[in-house]
């Protein structure tokens, strides 16, 4: 896949990508910004061959959205710290997690890891292959001699446990890592269905 080839496909797929970003709850302006970021990334693309360019562009959009939410959450927190006088220095440029954020993330990660360890070994192994080592379900199925649907069930169970663990510390403490704090207010509204 050449750079220009990928850009052509991008031009073609752009409306669908915007639709995806909007479906994820972003504003039209944010969606445009994100497309701009994506375009710049394509500029920097090193010309590696891409097997499924359209799926690849979706994946890039998806990852950029996640990155963006992380940095928005960080900036919001930093501005809040600034206004409440919690810290003397605010850097607009520095998007790296602060020590405090790293500590919180680390503690949450520990809680999640503990929760995952309550799972059977096989489930842990499959989840590790999928989530940490980045193997595809198909590859995992072939490697350990299970059907793809069985592999999916193990991964599903692990994510259930992960989500439950996260829900507990969401409830315990004000969340600084959530990319969408306003959505958590929705959550605490309780019965809105």
């Amino acid at each position: 896949m050449t750079q220009s080839g990928l850009k052509q496909i991008y031009a073609n797929l752009r409306p669908a990508l915007i639709r995806y970003v909007l479906a994820r709850g972003q504003s039209p302006e944010d969606a445009e910004d994100l497309m701009q970021d994506l375009y710049l990334k394509l500029d920097a693309h090193d010309g590696r061959r891409v097997d499924e360019p359209r799926a690849y562009l979706y994946r890039m959009t998806h990852n950029l959205l996640l990155d963006r939410r992380r940095s928005v959450a960080r900036r919001a927190k930093r501005e809040m710290d600034w206004s409440t006088g919690a810290t003397g220095v605010v850097s607009e440029i520095d998007e790296r997690p602060s020590a405090e954020e790293q500590l919180i993330a680390r503690q949450q990660l520990e809680a999640i890891t503990m929760a995952l360890q309550t799972l059977p070994d096989r489930t842990q192994d499959i989840f590790r292959r999928f989530r940490i080592e980045g193997q595809t379900q198909k590859a995992i199925a072939a490697n350990i001699g299970l059907s793809k649907s069985a592999v999916e069930k193990h991964i599903y169970r692990a994510y259930r446990v992960l989500a439950e663990a996260r829900a507990t510390f969401d409830a315990e403490s004000p969340d600084t890592t959530s990319p969408t704090p306003e959505r958590h207010i929705d959550m605490s509204d309780g019965d809105d269905s």
Partner: peptide, 14 residues
């Protein structure tokens, strides 16, 4: 989208 975001935020910790 709301439920998916929560799941993704938890997953992102890894």
């Amino acid at each position: 989208a709301r439920v998916y975001d929560q799941l993704e935020a938890g997953d992102a910790l890894l």
